[in-house]
Design a protein around this nucleic acid. Structure first.
Lengths: 230, 230
DNA sequence: CGACCATTTGATATGGATCAAGCGATGTGG
DNA sequence: CCACATCGCTTGATCCATATCAAATGGTCG
């Protein structure tokens, strides 16, 4: 009755099992109302889990370097990537006490790990911290809503939208360095790797982009991409 | 190059133009920290706009009776419904100062209209109000993330998921009274009305549901629906 | 009753998935 | 330093779920 899509054929993506989670040493002596100063930096190697779905959300995280993906896997193995987090981005912030997604480092990354309870209790005293927490959740909401608008579009529109999104977040001008695989992009966009690959070559043929190497994209014609972006 | 889907063929859905927005008379004498007590109830008739995308977000709203849809329309007319709000639900709460979606009453509705600034300024003084604002935004985030997981599924799974979602929110047991049209459901699920209709008849034939009238669905076999829900 | 609108049902088309093979880069052991 | 496995990606052929186009049905309201 129901076909089993099994999006993830090469599911050798999560090699590392659970790891021992270290307790970050909070800098208590640094009297500060800035959330970022309350954490300890931690290294995560490529493809290791940072936290799992349904685990207690004791920490929130800020990317110092590297890239992180959050995702959910359905019963039958289909994986949906919720977001990519680049340096400067904060993730893993929940109001409830369990994570709703899993998180993994895509490449070797340095992550600031911040104790949730200390931020929350600080927010109870300092209204600007509370407001910042709210604002962070709201910008996450905004991002997810934009993601929904991507998911109802055609393959070309999704890929174009993805490229523009990455370009907007990346530091440089028209060069994008993709830390994630085609499979990651596909699972983010709700497509298959084949469709992502084909769409990229289409865009290349229409001179909208260039693809010097598979992990590097050059935007040649943003206007054309934006037009595709509906 | 790009096909123009134009999902909304019967786009006579937004008959009413902008309406004069009344200023709610806040009950200032009712000293209360509860957000719900700070507003004034207002009637909205079927298919009238409550607010538009990009309008300043001066108010937030709580459904007393009726149902509301929020949506976005792409350049080419494709409409995505972000959410349906039933009695008791709060919507229109933004941290930024503009609404990111439009909102319309689906049927004649009574809506509590609450001045945003008064809630926000109260939140600056009362940390539990701040926490409630945060929590509301977070539960909205949760809802949108669940919506994304729906949008990557097959038509059967989406419709089954929608029915279970509505059943969980509705008061009664296995009877669902749908206030929204097939077009609304289709635009919520990223499908066409034809596919929604066909899927409902499939589910009826497989004895998972009954459809006594087009706006009324009876869940006959939740297990079957849940299994479809992946 | 008749017009209108929402919904259902049928026939056909198509975008993207699936199945399958090839290709280049990277690494590994002999 | 070279066969050769492996992995990520691309390209090709075919299939299928859902969209599209079209018509029939049914409910609602004047």
């Amino acid at each position: 009755m129901l076909t089993q899509p099994m999006t993830n054929r090469s599911s050798s993506r999560q090699p590392a099992g659970r790891f021992t989670r270290p307790v970050p040493s909070v800098n208590r002596h640094t009297a500060s109302n800035s959330i970022e100063l309350m954490g300890a930096p931690m290294p995560f190697t490529r493809n290791t889990e940072i936290y799992g779905e349904n685990e207690p959300s004791e920490y929130l995280y800020k990317v110092i370097s590297g890239t992180v993906r959050t995702y959910k896997v359905l019963n039958d193995g289909r994986r949906q990537i919720g977001a990519f987090y680049l340096p400067g981005d904060i993730f893993g912030l929940e109001v409830g006490d369990a994570h709703t997604f899993s998180a993994e480092a895509i490449i070797d990354s340095k992550i600031l790990v911040i104790k949730r309870s200390s931020v929350v209790s600080l927010a109870a005293r300092e209204s600007d911290v509370a407001r910042q927490l709210w604002r962070m959740t709201a910008s996450e909401l905004q991002r997810v809503q934009d993601h929904i608008m991507l998911l109802i579009k055609t393959a070309q529109e999704r890929v174009a939208g993805f490229l523009l999104e990455m370009a907007a977040r990346a530091p440089a001008g028209n060069e994008i360095d993709l830390p994630m695989s085609r499979q990651d992009i596909a699972d983010y966009l709700g497509l298959t790797i084949e469709t992502v690959s084909r769409t990229l070559t289409q865009l290349e043929h229409s001179a909208a982009i260039a693809v010097p190497t598979s992990r590097r994209i050059v935007l040649r014609n943003r206007g054309a991409l934006s037009r595709l972006n509906a």
